[in-house]
Computed example of a mutant assay.
Amino acid sequence: MARLARLRVYPVKGLDGIDLEAADVLEGGTVAHDREYALFDTGGDVLNGKRTERVHALETDYDPATGLLAVETSDGEERQFDLEADRETAATWFSEFFDVELSFERDTSLGFVDRREMGPSVVSTATLETVASWFDGMTVAGARRRLRANIEVAGVDPFWEDRFVGANAPAFEIGGIRFDGVTPCGRCVVPRRDPDTGDPTEEFRTRFVRKREETFPEWADLDAFDHYYSLMLITRVPASDRGRTLRVGDPVEISRN
């Protein structure tokens, strides 16, 4: 049976994700705690993995109950910051680490997602397994960390998420919460990097595009895809379903209403 297998958010944009057992859909349409914080330079530009591979030199963890962000550098330095009470101290440390003046900002209503008019990202476990098989040495966990989806659905075929965009595409429900597909996710530079070291995977994009074309589902609407360097679905939750709670294990059902 199709089910919500993993619920993952990225509390600080560009840094590591955390797994949750349950999370609310915010009034802004995103998942609570996803990209809740972000680092901005003095010009108002965000610092993330698209901007610098140095983010891979950090291992982070976040506790939503306490607001504590734990950080460990590749050199073994460990720090802990209270993002609820003192973001200035955190901003000072991150400014020194990235060698750019930064401020730590927070948005609890929507988060600092790239597509602010859209909602959670969705992928299937089978899709991650397939992508991992395309590259020597890549694990499913590694593919998961490269692609950074919020919602992972198990019990479905590879590229299941592709059916929800294009002409006459259906919607789907997770625990009764409706999700409408908006667009496939065109990928950036981040997935080609090893999530631990930041080292680029040789010819990643070329191989990804070739394998994606070879395995593209015959039932998917190719016209809905700008190119084959796309993977993952960006969705929108209707306003009427926002404020409700997603839980790992919730059933996933296709809706044609």
Rank of each mutant, 00 (worst) to 15 (best):
F104W: 15
F104N: 15
E105H: 15
E105P: 09
R106W: 08
R106E: 12
D107Y: 13
T108A: 15
T108D: 10
T108V: 14
L110R: 13
L110Q: 06
L110P: 00
L110H: 09
G111E: 07
G111D: 12
G111C: 07
G111N: 05
F112C: 09
F112L: 11
F112G: 08
F112E: 08
F112K: 07
V113W: 13
D114K: 11
D114W: 15
D114A: 08
D114L: 14
R115P: 05
R116E: 06
R116Q: 15
E117M: 13
E117A: 10
M118Q: 14
G119Q: 03
G119D: 09
P120C: 06
P120K: 10
P120I: 14
P120E: 12
P120Q: 15
P120L: 10
P120F: 11
S121W: 02
S121H: 04
V122W: 02
V122T: 09
V122A: 04
V123Y: 06
V123H: 13
V123S: 10
T125V: 11
T125G: 00
T125R: 03
T125F: 00
A126K: 02
T127E: 01
L128M: 11
L128Q: 02
L128W: 03
L128T: 00
T130C: 03
T130R: 11
A132I: 03
A132W: 01
S133Q: 07
F135Q: 01
F135D: 00
F135K: 01
D136I: 08
D136L: 11
D136K: 08
D136H: 12
D136F: 07
D136V: 13
D136N: 08
G137D: 07
G137Q: 05
M138I: 05
M138N: 07
T139P: 05
